[in-house]
Amino acid sequence: MAEKVKIMDETGIRRALVRIAHEILEQNRGVEGLVIVGIHRRGVPLAKRLAEAISQIEGVEVPVGTLDINLYRDDLSTIGYHPIVRKTEIPVDVSERTVVLVDDVLYTGRTVRAALDALMDLGRPKAIQLAVLVDRGHRELPIRADYVGKNLPTAKREIISVKIAEIDGKEEVVINEG
């Protein structure tokens, strides 16, 4: 690993999330019928923070859930290890609601594809939107984010590392030259 470039620090991440919270409210004209769902693992704390930011702005609680996509992966027979399957816990029925999916990095789009399938099995949401902290490009599927913390054009060999306090003990987005 030759070089490390810090793209976002704690403040940068916080500002991005607050902005996304505003954008979600603007786009959906409030919180009516919203549910924020984080994709395991780092999407989960990010979803919680987005919900907190929204409730600070609007003074209304937004339901938050978690989604595990490992049983919906398209690469299970090729990845060569067993991803840990965590819990899917969404406190409300997703049917007729607008679900905001949250993940740390948007890359090939395959995780989001799996998440869409997983969500559809739980009900028929009115709409699904996608919020990510970093969009690094290189999509392999026709998927795009509705809310992006930072657009980060990368080379495929580069590795984006997102650290979130609840999981990693620190807050940063770093590019490692692979």
């Binding site: 049983l71 919906y72 067993h82 840990i84 399957v85 965590r86 819990k87 399938d117 099995d121 739980l122």
Partner: peptide
């Protein structure tokens, strides 16, 4: 422990209306 943890995640399907995973 791996099997038991995984079983507890799999058990979530019991409460679903559509009990079908593509796994």
């Amino acid at each position: 422990e791996t099997i038991l943890d995984l079983a507890s995640s799999c058990k979530q399907i019991y409460s679903r209306q559509i009990k079908k995973l593509p796994t």
